[in-house]
Design a protein around this nucleic acid. Structure first.
Length: 468
RNA sequence: GGCGGCGUAGCCAAGUGGUAAGGCGCGGGCCUGCAAAGCCCUGAUCACCGGUUCGAAUCCGGUCGCCGCCUCCA
């Protein structure tokens, strides 16, 4: 059995996973900023983190998974200025920031449940950990890493030579970028806020007292503060979207390694790639933001999106379009139908006959979570002519504990479960016509039902129907 | 300007030195009165050019095309 390998952004290599504590794994995942519904790109990040935790659990690890809820502090635009997303959403809706946060936190939870994500052990909110954030800020100040300017307290990246390590940054080269609106007084463009002072002229909903004055925490601080609270100041795995590596995670590393005095702060950094919408960037202004709700309105089961996710490796950009989603949905529903049939099998399986497939699946997942390969193993099993139904069922359920398609509860699409006196009556008429070989009448009834969206399926047990 | 990724059959997508997994679609077959569903069968030499090698989709160089990040962002 080969070792588990993960691609580590920090070292840019696939590395053997060695936990800090035997048999345990601590994972921190950058969660949502709860000022709006999450789109399917966000869902991909959640699915990736969930796949990771499920796999580690299947390997016998006791997993502690922390996903934060950012309910304060992110700005709408510009380097360090602009309006706060939470504040803006609150203003628009005529609600408090807290009401907005609660609503979208709840929505986020429901979306995660819809795609069958395992509940994280901890789901801390930034606003409930202000003290921890201030405490880390104080440590950094004592270490001489901070400086004060007019609008806040900033981290001085010159004090942290390893600043560029995680993302392999070239700060000199980046200077060529057309950056906008530098905050007055910052020593380096990449210096970032630890604490921002409240503007006496602007009424904010979210402000707290601190040793530096009234204000609110910088937007990277919470992840360092909350991860240390629940996972310790040195932990195994940190996940997030690839876009977070350059700024957010780089800054997390800086403040954490300086504040906690550790290196590396996080052993393994795992980042998922983006969904590719074929050049059409998903943005609210273009009105093409896609959510699970949008997919549901088009008739797609949220779990079909999970199946879609599993079809590509997490570190590859994955093309999302009508065709690829439809293909995934079809594959998914066939798999569900097969699983539903296998669920009824009562025989016992033979572990010896399952072993080879089990190994293939496990090896695929151990190689940096190669879900598409693992999924292919699942299809091989399920369409194998050599395995007994009992063995297929055992393997299917075992694999699904990692893949998370909830196949243990698979049911055939409603067929035959619906009853409607009128439709059932028509079905009987059609059967009578068929028996008397009056196919013209039989087909007419079928066509009429099809016209109102009722699909007939003739089975050995008689005709069934479902709404399509 | 800097950093990173990608280009594999109609579509999605594994594979990173020894002659190409899987899913969807198309086509064919079985089943069916016909159909649907289901089942079976079926397709590519890997953007292009050059090089390294006994051997490359896989390594190196170049060209073209696409995407992401560098500013909140999955």
């Amino acid at each position: 059995m080969s070792a588990i390998h993960f691609y580590n952004t920090r070292t840019r290599k696939k590395e053997i996973f060695r936990p800090l504590k035997n048999g345990q794994a601590g994972i921190y995942t950058c969660g949502p900023t709860v000022y709006g519904p999450m789109h399917i790109g966000n869902v991909r990040s959640q699915l990736f983190a969930d796949l990771l935790r499920r796999f580690l659990e299947s390997e016998g690890f006791a997993v502690t998974h922390v996903i934060n809820i950012t309910d304060v502090g992110h700005l709408v635009s510009d380097a360090d200025e602009g309006e706060d997303k939470m504040e803006l959403a609150a203003q628009r809706a005529g609600e408090t920031a807290e009401e907005i946060a609660d609503r979208y936190t709840e929505l986020w939870r429901r979306d995660r449940q819809a795609v069958n994500c395992v509940e994280p052990e901890h789901n801390p909110k930034a606003t409930e950990h202000i003290d921890e954030q201030i405490k880390l800020g104080v440590k950094l100040e004592e270490g001489g890493y901070l400086y004060r300017i007019e609008d806040g307290i900033y981290f001085d990246i010159a004090r942290f030579p390893r600043y560029t390590e995680l993302a392999g940054l070239d700060l000199e080269g980046q200077a060529g970028a057309q950056r906008i609106d530098q905050v007055e007084g910052k020593r380096h463009p990449a210096d970032f806020a630890i604490w921002k002072f409240a503007d006496p002229d602007v009424r904010r909903l979210q402000e707290w007292e601190s040793p530096w004055g009234r204000g609110f925490p910088g937007w990277h601080l919470e992840c360092s503060a909350m991860s240390s609270r629940y996972l310790g100041e040195h932990f195994d795995i940190h996940t997030g979207g690839i876009d977070l590596a350059t700024v957010h995670h780089t800054n997390e590393v800086a403040q954490s390694e300086c504040g906690f005095g550790v290196h590396p702060w996080v052993e393994y950094w795992l980042h998922n790639e983006f969904l590719d919408f074929g050049g059409e960037k998903m943005s609210k202004s273009k009105g093409n933001v896609k959510t699970l709700l949008d997919l549901a309105e088009r008739g797609y089961d949220p779990l079909a999106f999970r199946y879609f996710f599993l079809q590509a490796h997490y570190r590859q950009q994955q093309t999302f379009n009508d065709e690829s989603m439809e293909a995934a949905a079809r594959g998914h529903s066939r798999l569900v139908a097969l699983a539903a049939d296998l669920r009824g099998v009562k025989d016992r399986g033979d572990p010896d006959k399952q072993a080879a497939h089990r190994t293939q699946f496990r090896e695929a997942m151990a190689d940096d979570l190669n879900a598409p390969k693992a999924l292919a193993v699942l299809w091989d099993v399920v369409r194998s002519g050599k395995l007994s139904s009992a063995d297929q069922r055992d393997l299917l359920l075992e694999f699904d504990a990692v893949l998370g398609l909830d196949l243990a509860h698979a049911e055939r699409a409603q067929e035959g479960y619906e009853s409607d006196p009128r439709i059932d009556g028509l079905l009987k008429q059609r059967e009578a016509a068929r028996v008397s070989r009056d196919f013209a009448s039989a087909d007419r009834i079928r066509d009429e039902l099809a016209a109102e969206g009722v699909e007939l399926i003739d089975t050995p047990e008689g005709p069934r129907w479902r709404r399509s």
